[in-house]
Each structure stands twice: as structure tokens, then as C-alpha cells.
């Protein structure tokens, strides 16, 4: 693959790069009217629209639409919130977790929806925003539950370890809970979406170039193969998009649960 790439670069193929993620504004100059920003709003509208339609008329025996809405809602409510946070406290976090999962999921799936084909969270700012919100939330919940110093102790002193080594471990614990968590949360989501989109652009542009522009008949089958690979990667991406939404929501629930826990 890389050898072929280098040959192509030499002949005039421009490989895709981070520049492909800096899309121009849709209207005028405003940063608020770029494609990713509009997709973000569209995803929120879709998520809320879906749940509003499916939950408006609730019946004891659900219709098909209501059943779909219930299943989607219960997947996060029971499968993530209740199982991780526990049945006494989880209900307060259900709206956040439901919104988080479906908002990220729809934004991710935009990456392979025809004519949209851009995963919003390949813009790192969006991932930073959600991770920052989660960080404020779980630390706030911990401080509310244990008090500021109680929470700092809760976060930095692991149970069952004593002696002088604790002095070395306290900064490590603090770092990994307070600083590493939000960073990995944001970067995991961003990097998966960014890399997946880059891979798709690479294969589709490469296939186009090989078939139509390279000018050598021998490249055509390779180009077709690259295009087939792009289709296969799209399906792989669908899995990754779902998993990243799931992992982000699951980790959020685990951080909240950890902040609420009585002991380590």
C-alpha cells in the first residue's frame, strides 16, 4: 500500500490530510455555519425528534414506533445507567446519558450517510466540549457527595494501600482521575472518527485517481479493488461509530459511579 502511494504521490496524487477536515463556512465567513456545526445541530434535532415522536402517545401495549423508542431509551437507561450507576441514583443521570449516546451515535453515523459523509466528532473541539462537560459533571457529583476534601481524598487515596509508597501514588491517582480521564475520553472519540474518515477519503480518492486520472490501464483493477475496500471499510466504520458512542457513554457512567461510590 505505502509503496504504491509513494509512486502515486510522485505522479501527482495528493493524499488526504488534516486539511480535509477544515471545511469552509456555508454562509459567509461565520465559524458557526460550517458543515460540521450544521451536522451537530441536525443530529440534536434528529435525536429529539425521534424520541418526541416515539414517546408522545404512550400506550400500555406499544405501537411499532413506541416500541422502537422504548427499546432505544431502555438500552441506555437500563443497559448503561442502571447497570453501572446502580438503581438508587441512576435516574437523575438518564437524560444526560441518553442524550450523550444518541447524540454521539448520530453524529458518528453521519460519517457514512450518503451525501453527508462527515463524522462531526472528527472536529476535535466537539469532543473536547463533551469530555469537558463530563469532567465537570463527575467531579461536581463527587464534590457534592463527599465534600471537596472528602472527594480529593476519595480520588487520590486508593483503598488497601498504605505506607510511604502512598506519597508516590497520590499524584499518580490524581493525574489519572482528574487529567487523563477527560483527555482520553475526548481523544478516543476524536481519533477514531478522524482516522476512520481519513481512511475512507484515502480509499475513495485513491480509487478515483487510479481509475480516472493515473492514465495507466494496469491501475484500473487496483482502483476498483480500492473502491471495494472503501465499501468494506464503511461497514467497519459503522461498527466503530457505534462502539465509540457506547464507550463514551459507558465511561461517563463509570466515572459518575466512581465519584458516587462510598469506598474504592
Amino acid at each position: 500500500m505505502s509503496a504504491a502511494d509513494q509512486v502515486l504521490v510522485a505522479e501527482g496524487f495528493t493524499p488526504p490530510g488534516p486539511g480535509d477536515f477544515e471545511l469552509p463556512a456555508v454562509f459567509g465567513d461565520s465559524l458557526l455555519f460550517t458543515k460540521p456545526a450544521l451536522l451537530l445541530v441536525l443530529a440534536a434535532v434528529l435525536v429529539f425528534g425521534f424520541f418526541l415522536v416515539t414517546s408522545r402517545k404512550m400506550a400500555m401495549v406499544p405501537s411499532k414506533a413506541q416500541y422502537a423508542g422504548e427499546e432505544a431509551y431502555s438500552f441506555v437507561r437500563n443497559g448503561i445507567a442502571r447497570d453501572i450507576i446502580g438503581s438508587s441514583d441512576f435516574i437523575r443521570f438518564v437524560p444526560l446519558l441518553v442524550a450523550l449516546f444518541f447524540f454521539i451515535l448520530i453524529n458518528n453515523v453521519f460519517g457514512i450517510v450518503p451525501f453527508i459523509q462527515f463524522p462531526s466528532f472528527s472536529r476535535v473541539s466537539f469532543a473536547y466540549a463533551l469530555a469537558g462537560l463530563v469532567w465537570v459533571l463527575y467531579n461536581g457529583v463527587g464534590i457534592w457527595k463527599h465534600g471537596l476534601f472528602g472527594y480529593l481524598k476519595h480520588v487520590t487515596v486508593p483503598g488497601g494501600i498504605g505506607g510511604p509508597i502512598l506519597l508516590l501514588i497520590i499524584p499518580l491517582e490524581f493525574f489519572s482521575t482528574v487529567i487523563v480521564r477527560p483527555a482520553t475520553l475526548a481523544l478516543r472519540l476524536f481519533a477514531n472518527m478522524f482516522a476512520g474518515h481519513l481512511l475512507l477519503i484515502l480509499f475513495t480518492l485513491g480509487a478515483e485517481y487510479l481509475v480516472f486520472e493515473a492514465g495507466k490501464a494496469a491501475y484500473t483493477p487496483v482502483g476498483v479493488l480500492a473502491f471495494l475496500m472503501a465499501i468494506a471499510i464503511s461497514f467497519l466504520e459503522l461498527l466503530v461509530q457505534f462502539l465509540q458512542a457506547y464507550v463514551f457513554t459507558l465511561l461517563t457512567a463509570m466515572y459518575i459511579s466512581g465519584a458516587l461510590a462510598e469506598e474504592h
Partner: peptide, 10 residues
């Protein structure tokens, strides 16, 4: 701008 937008929308 993007961070603020994402926060507000979410």
C-alpha cells in the same frame, strides 16, 4: 466557537 456551539446544542 465550536466548543461553545457543541456545549449549547448538547
Amino acid at each position: 466557537a465550536e466548543i461553545v456551539l457543541a456545549l449549547v446544542v448538547f
